[in-house]
Design a protein around this nucleic acid. Structure first.
Length: 904
RNA sequence: AGGCGCAUAGCUCAGUUGGUUAGAGCACCACGUUGACAUCGUGGGGGUCCGCGGUUCAAAUCCGCGUGCGCCUACCA
């Protein structure tokens, strides 16, 4: 027997303390540069670089919860797996501090009135919040163990990203993809800015009453025998004064004869003439402030898009209530009557009761009429245009950042033309590898349903400035040169006179770019795309020669709700700029939900602070919870599941301690090993497990990998193999030296295998165990860290490298039989109320000669695991017995103490 | 209104080419601690796999219809 009297506690403390261990490894990994990207490494030179593109979170929002910890952990499982597979990892972290979300956050936090603060003061506040937020994020990501190369960060408002966004803009100008148009655009009246289709979401269903409004036929255009009025139904009566046509279906018999008719627009005859009233005779007259003039009259148009069955079959067309209005306005070349201003106030000087009233309700989900609607209804009622009101359930289109119903404004904006590229963008989506595959459908549907070109102008302060000036004389845009970027035309005047007319007086574009204009470039920013033409700049974080290795990137990881935005825009940009996909693969994660199944959010208050969970249970436990989600599916946060992670940590700690007990003073190789049935079984199971875990990780299915590893670890390794093998090290064991040697080999390589299988999920615990317990045992060539150890399956050959060549189906079958026998003994013990620790004097298996021959190789392990003195064929006293599942074998036991008692 | 996803034990969820008696963790019941682990072990109870119909020797799994929930998109005159 080997000396087992070593003091185990000196090597591994009895308990694992994540509070002490985790921060220590964060420091050590940082100091050793373990996560640094090395473009000149052997792997990189061999073309094995793996670049990952993860979401740059809005740092200013300070909204971190365990849902975020979940999705970033899931991304990182794959990173760690790839690193162990031998890839050079490029894992940067971005911070999105650009654009409207930041502005709104700063406005609310400091209760800012934009009229009373300078643009510069405001931007400085945004930058401050941005820095503070980034620090909070970095602290959390580090404590979560994310293996980010922190030298490779980017910020979407920093010069490098600004340069990219402006470079992208100019490149698209050169490619003829960008144009400035005066067009109806989606508009948020609360934020006073234009929006893109992707910034709009559907509101909840609510009652949006339908108002029937009568339009009288203009007597001058009356059709003989035709009606004298038409009835329309609208949810937006305040838009009636902006009506420019009534529309019906061309086949609708009711209106067929009315091609020449004109309708009077209600309320347009009213004239408010305050000065005249004031100089009037002075008598008090309630109607005295209104006089009557001519109605504005509008045509009837015929359009296939009108549903004759809907409402009255007659529809009003306003400029502009919705995209349908725009379509008819374009097609039929209708007039334009704008009655809502940029702040969402009515412009109706002739209707003072309505003029200046807001068209939106700031409080979300309110079914209360907005003030403009209430005023318009009163007017329509007073003047007898309102026939009736009825309930109607529908949804409003809301600005997704503030939930204000969107309006349509007309203003000059910069557009990236995308609608003509739908087919090409769909093809890109099909060329991309989607995990899970079903998520491609969301992209497909978004592209198919795209109705607006991408409007990138935002009437805000905090964002990337457009790199151009307008000539004050001829209005021609004068663009900056690529080598002048980044540039802020508000701060720098145009270095040249107008290229069109030579005028020297140019003014900057006051708008800023849509935040997605920058975010859509993250893979290109990481690759320093805008600098590809430059001379190499040593101050940049990335060597230029590395760019082809990291662009297109290996993988994009993100949640499903931003497929239509971040993913779509990124695909579009890469298509336009580099004629390629931005990445080979996407991995779409779900949401973190609260225990009731609602999406976690800071705003709803149903969130859990990840920092608190990490403090209490450790980052590894939190990561274990995150690993439980099926890819693409949402995952509830349940503290019990995190506790399950903690249990696994403890079990791994203790089982490795156990292995170490018999390995510490071991000199391997002095005795030839002769594996027993149990050794051959567990080694084959190990090989099987590696294959399953590898296959799962390759498909981004980390949860399947964890399940495979955990099942092997708990059920096979701990509950059975370790129990069987204990007896091999007992004083006076019948096992020979070669069998003890085999057990030691199994313990060492099995333990190391387990640490590697769990390393992507539980980086701290596995590293601690590796460094304290296993590294020295593995000899001088042992890897520096468990995270730089080779994954136990070779990618090229597909061969499992641990217990190589030892897989045997027969060993597995034999092992199953052995486990069944052991389970039968346990069952007997329970039936006879005999504890597992009590030795047995009698152990019998009822078997025929052939079965017995089959069992004989198993008997040493069986007897050892049963704590019996031996095993015989046949049934003894009926103290307890159990069937072995699926066979005719029966097992019976006799507890040692009872025999002793009987004998006395 | 269209699309996608989900529906399996009391709870949270696995179950990938259809194939023994449908699984895990938690919870529950009983038993068991002097050697890795009570943050544990062993044994056990517990399921109309949402419903109906179909294909098949065989369906939780495939097909059709329906119900409920979630999400995406549209409509929102």
């Amino acid at each position: 027997m080997t000396d087992t009297s070593i003091n185990l506690a000196e090597i591994l403390p009895k308990n694992y303390d994540h509070r002490e261990v985790e921060p220590r490894w964060v420091q050590a990994w940082e100091a050793s540069g373990l996560h640094h990207y090395r473009p000149d490494s052997a792997a990189a030179r061999a073309g094995r670089t793996f670049a990952i593109d993860t979401p740059p979170p809005y740092v200013s929002a300070a909204h971190l919860h365990t849902g975020h910890a979940m999705s970033y952990s899931q991304a990182e499982f794959v990173v760690r797996f790839k690193r162990m597979r031998g890839y050079e990892i490029f894992y940067p972290m971005g911070f999105d501090d650009n654009g409207l979300p930041t502005e709104r956050y700063v406005e609310q936090k400091y209760k800012i009135n934009k009229g009373k603060i300078s643009r510069k003061e405001f931007i400085d506040l945004c930058l401050k919040e941005t820095r503070d937020g980034a620090a909070v994020y970095e602290t959390l990501w580090r404590s979560l163990g994310l293996s980010i190369d922190w030298r490779m960060t980017y910020s979407t408002i920093a010069p490098r990203a600004v340069r990219h966004a402006q470079h992208s803009f100019l490149d698209l100008v050169n490619k003829g993809r960008l144009e400035r148009r005066v067009d109806p655009i989606l508009w948020c009246p609360l934020c006073s800015t234009a929006l893109a289709q992707a910034d709009v979401e559907s509101g909840d269903e609510q009652n949006r009453p339908m108002h029937a409004v009568r339009f009288d036929v203009d007597p001058a255009a009356l059709v003989v025998g035709g009606p004298t009025s038409g009835l329309i139904e609208t949810t937006r009566p305040e838009l009636v004064p902006a009506c420019v046509a009534l529309a019906c279906h061309p086949d609708d018999k009711r209106f067929k004869t009315l091609a020449q008719v004109r309708f009077q627009v209600p309320l347009t005859d009213l004239r408010f003439a305050k000065s005249e009233i004031a100089s009037d005779d002075g008598t008090v007259a309630s109607t005295g402030d209104v006089t009557r003039g001519d109605y504005r009259t509008i045509p009837l148009i015929f359009d296939e898009s009108v549903d004759p069955e809907f409402g009255t079959g007659l529809m009003m067309v306003c400029t502009f209530g919705d995209p349908e209005d725009i379509a008819k306005w374009r097609k039929h070349k209708l007039d334009t009557v704008l009655i809502i201003d940029a702040q969402g106030r009515m412009i109706t000087p002739h209707l003072p009761d309505l003029d200046g009233k807001r068209v939106y309700v700031a409080a979300k989900n309110s079914s209360v009429y907005n003030e403009a609607r209430a005023a318009a209804l009163q007017l329509l009622r007073d003047h007898n245009y309102l026939e009736h009101i009825k309930d109607n359930v529908s949804r409003a289109s809301l600005h997704e950042r503030c939930s204000t119903p969107v309006e349509i404004q007309v203003a000059p904006q910069w557009f990236i033309r995308l609608l003509d590229l739908k087919d090409q963008l769909l093809q890109r989506g099909r060329d991309l590898v989607w995990n899970p595959p079903a998520m491609r459908e969301r992209y497909e549907q978004w592209v198919v349903n795209l109705r607006w070109d991408w409007n990138i102008s935002r009437q805000r302060f905090y964002g990337v400035p457009f790199p151009l000036w307008f000539c004050t004389a001829c209005e021609a845009p004068n663009f900056a040169q690529l080598d002048e970027l980044p540039i802020d035309p508000l701060m720098t005047s145009c270095p040249r006179p107008c290229s069109a007319c030579g005028c020297a007086d140019l003014r900057p574009e006051p708008d800023v770019m849509d935040t997605w204009m920058t975010s859509s470039l993250t893979p290109l920013i990481n690759a320093n795309w805008a600098m590809w033409q430059d001379q190499p700049d040593p101050s940049l974080p990335l060597a230029e020669q590395a760019r082809s290795a990291i662009y297109p990137a290996g993988i994009r990881v993100q949640a499903h709700e931003i497929i239509r935005t971040w993913l779509f825009y990124t695909v579009a940009k890469s298509h336009l700029h580099t004629q390629s996909l931005p990445w080979q693969t996407v991995m779409i994660s779900g949401w973190g939900l609260d225990r009731h199944g609602k999406k976690m959010s800071k705003r709803l208050g149903n969130f859990v602070e990840p920092g608190e969970v990490i403090a209490k249970y450790g980052a590894d436990s939190l990561r274990y919870w995150a690993a439980g989600a099926t890819l693409g599916q949402d995952l509830r946060y349940l503290e019990d599941d995190v506790k399950g992670g903690k249990r696994l940590l403890t079990k791994l700690w203790n089982s490795t301690r156990f292995a170490l007990l018999y390995l510490s003073n071991w000199q391997p190789g002095q005795v030839a090993q002769t594996p027993t049935a149990a050794d051959r079984w567990i080694r084959s199971r190990a090989v099987q497990t590696v294959q399953a875990a590898t296959e799962a990780f390759e498909g981004c299915e980390y949860n399947r990998a964890v399940r495979a590893a955990e099942g092997f670890f708990w059920n096979d390794w701990c509950d059975n193999y370790l129990e069987i093998v204990k007896d091999r090290f007992r004083e006076g064991t019948p096992f020979a030296g070669g069998e003890v040697e085999a057990a030691r080999h199994t313990l060492l390589h099995g333990s190391f295998l387990l640490l590697r299988l769990f390393a992507p999920i539980l980086p701290f615990l596995t590293e601690e165990l590796y460094q304290l317990a296993l590294k020295n045992l593995l000899g001088p060539d042992a890897p520096q860290s468990v995270h730089s150890a080779a994954w136990p399956q070779d990618e090229h050959s597909g061969q499992v490298t641990v217990f190589a060549g030892e897989f045997s189906a027969e060993a597995l079958t034999q092992g199953e039989l052995l486990l069944a026998l052991i389970a039968a003994v346990r069952s007997c013990r329970t039936a006879a109320k005999i504890g597992g620790g009590r030795p047995l004097s009698g152990l019998y298996v009822c078997a025929d000669a052939q079965q017995w021959a089959q069992l004989e190789p198993l008997l040493p392990d069986f007897v050892a695991a049963s704590r019996a003195t031996g095993c015989e064929r046949g049934i003894a006293a009926d103290l307890a017995s159990a069937e072995v599942a699926g066979t005719t074998l029966a097992v019976a036991i006799v507890p040692l103490v009872d025999v002793v008692a009987q004998g006395e």
